[in-house]
């Protein structure tokens, strides 16, 4: 089981990283989503894997799973939604303003605009 989960984490990470390295915004957004999955599952797994022992107190139950990583991951899931939403809107804004959805900056955009500077620095 541990092997299955860790290989899944690895594959999700690899897919996420590959997509994040693409040159178009939408692929990058998908990539961050994949990376969120991988990292949430990874954080969750630091509590070690337990089957059939949810962190809800019951009479007679002896073993429980570790609740702390779960609480952390729960908020992480919601926050990553917030992050995805902001990034998507930024991507949309960049596309609408700039006319294309590339993520890298062409050289012309990087150099300071000399027309704007009036006092030489």
């Amino acid at each position: 089981m541990e092997f299955l989960l860790s290989s899944a984490i690895g594959v999700l990470t690899a897919a996420g990283v590959y997509l994040v390295l693409r040159l178009r915004t939408f692929a990058v957004v998908l990539g961050t989503t994949m990376l969120s999955y991988a990292i949430n599952v990874f954080l969750f797994s630091t509590g070690r894997l337990v089957v059939d022992a949810p962190p809800v107190l019951r009479y007679g139950a002896e073993t429980y799973t570790d609740p702390l990583p779960q609480a952390l991951v729960l908020t992480a899931i919601v926050i990553s939604f917030g992050m995805t939403a902001v990034v998507v809107l930024m991507a949309l804004g960049a596309f609408l303003e700039g006319g294309d959805d590339r993520v890298d900056m062409p050289r012309a955009d990087r150099l300071p605009d000399h027309r704007a500077g009036d006092d030489g620095a």
């Binding site: 541990e2 984490i9 690895g10 390295l21 693409r22 797994s45």
Partner: peptide, 22 residues
Amino acid sequence: LDAFVATVTGLGFGALSYCIMR
């Protein structure tokens, strides 16, 4: 090249989580 970077990162991350879980 990207695929290589992604594979290496994925392998590293997967191995890390395997070590932690075990």
